[in-house]
């Protein structure tokens, strides 16, 4: 599955961004003091004098991510591990198994939100579940982002085309309304959802799903 964004391990991202910035500063022929002042004014601690320290990967989050990687191996990709936030991408065939593991072994117990993100360039729509925990004291701060990608059709026919993924409603009951919203706004059909009807949109909505990128706001 190809990835549409440059989401890699976070440490790598920041170093790239930093080297870009310092190059720009050189090409604009700023002196070191000027460059430092420029970055300080931006409120960014990116002055070229200071070497970038990669952020340490937090241990507790790492242990959670290790648990899930050792179970699923190649089936999942850990996108980032930051303090209180973990993001994992999986294929849609495996998402139910991964979600069950997150519920039963990692003790996350509810979904905070289900978001769709449209990537027309790579012809994919990403579905992201943000999961949290009420019962486990240690996980109070944590949000686990579980993402999957589904193919996107240029001429959508919501519910009847290839834009579909298994529903997580039987694993996390709380996704019920969130998935219905994602269905109407992005046209992602959740297979196995018992009540896949529209929620917010009017019954007679006849246009493409409105949160896709090719649905433009008038005048913009």
């Amino acid at each position: 599955m190809s990835s549409g964004t440059d989401k890699d391990v976070e440490v790598k991202d920041t170093t790239e961004e930093h080297s870009d910035n310092s190059e720009n500063a050189k090409s604009d022929s700023m002196s070191k003091d000027e460059a430092k002042k420029f970055y300080e004014e931006k409120g960014l601690d990116l002055s070229p004098d200071v070497p970038v320290k990669p952020k340490p990967i937090p241990a507790f989050e790492k242990s959670l991510a290790d648990k899930i990687s050792s179970k699923f191996g190649d089936k999942i990709r850990v996108d980032y591990i930051r303090s209180d936030r973990i993001r994992v991408t999986t294929k849609r065939e495996d998402i139910v198994d991964v979600a069950k593991f997150i519920r039963d072994e990692l003790k996350y117990d509810h979904a905070e939100s289900v978001s769709g993100v449209d990537y027309p360039d790579s012809s994919e729509i990403e579905v992201i579940y943000h999961l949290g925990s009420y019962t486990d004291e240690k996980l109070g701060r944590q949000i686990f982002a579980l993402a999957t990608r589904v193919p996107r059709e240029d001429v959508p026919n919501p519910g009847s085309d290839a834009t579909r993924t298994p529903s997580l409603r039987d694993v996390f009951y709380s996704v019920e309304f969130h998935e219905r919203e994602c269905f109407e706004m992005f046209g992602v059909y959740f297979e196995g959802h018992p009540d896949m009807r529209r929620l917010l949109l009017p019954e007679d909505w006849a246009d493409i799903p409105p949160f896709r990128k090719d649905f433009k706001i008038k005048g913009r």
């Binding site: 979904a111 009420y134 109070g140 709380s174």
Partner: peptide, 23 residues
Amino acid sequence: IRLGTTGSVLRASGVDFDVRKKE
């Protein structure tokens, strides 16, 4: 917990969760 409620609905059912305290 199962329905993923939040705020006063959650705390009225005996779950001690407030983002201001937890995060």
